[in-house]
Design a protein around this nucleic acid. Structure first.
Length: 188
DNA sequence: GGGCCGATTAGG
DNA sequence: CTAATCGGCCCG
């Protein structure tokens, strides 16, 4: 397990989303293996925030690759993305599910419920379990203390499907899951 | 300023 | 199936 380099986020956003499967994400005493992601492209993707929001476009131009893009959805759920920039396609990778690894008791405390496999099997569940909020918007996990972002020793088998929970560009095959993992949000 | 909508979740 | 709950966007 090696820490991800800045260059990991300096390439095609869709490729990056696929390669994040199997990587470890950690924050504030908790960590998990990334088992589900989705890619959103800064250009030409109606489902990406950059399509409508000036603020999102500004975020892309202002920040370095690897920076966290955290936003509030439905007025109550924080969703965690990583900025990909400087490669073929700029964009974001939404982290949608983790397999809990470390600090499981702390996760349960923060979530106040759940079987281990339901602690992080959704984009808003995992931010709650890892203690990620709007305070972490625009922070850089690659250089800020308390964060872990690391690569697995071996490559993992992934499954590709269309993105879920959106109403625009529903046919893009930009959702990635770890093959056979039970901690994904909605199994294919 | 008002109305609408959403990359979701838990509970009935 | 729906309520919860609020920032950003589009009007006007």
């Amino acid at each position: 397990m090696k820490p991800l380099a800045r260059s990991f986020f300096k390439r095609d956003a869709v490729l990056c989303a696929r390669e994040l499967i199997g990587c470890t994400l950690g924050h504030a005493g908790t960590s998990g293996v990334i088992v589900e992601t989705e890619a959103y492209a800064a250009e030409g993707d109606p489902a990406c925030h950059t399509w409508k929001r000036h603020g999102a476009r500004d975020f892309v131009s202002r920040n370095d690759p690897g920076t966290a893009y955290v936003y509030l959805n439905y007025g109550m759920h924080w969703l965690f993305n990583l900025l990909v920039k400087g490669g073929e396609r700029d964009g974001f990778v939404l982290i949608r599910a983790l397999e809990p690894l470390g600090g499981v008791d702390l996760m349960k405390e923060r979530r106040r419920r759940g079987e281990v496999e339901e602690l992080c099997n959704g984009p808003a569940k995992l931010t709650q379990a890892l203690g990620i909020t709007g305070d972490h918007h625009e922070v850089d996990p690659l250089s800020v203390r308390g964060w872990v972002l690391a690569k697995p020793a071996k490559t993992v088998a992934t499954i590709t499907s269309t993105r879920i929970g959106i109403s625009q560009a529903t046919d893009y095959p930009w959702r990635f899951l770890m093959k056979g993992n039970r901690c994904v949000s909605f199994p294919v």
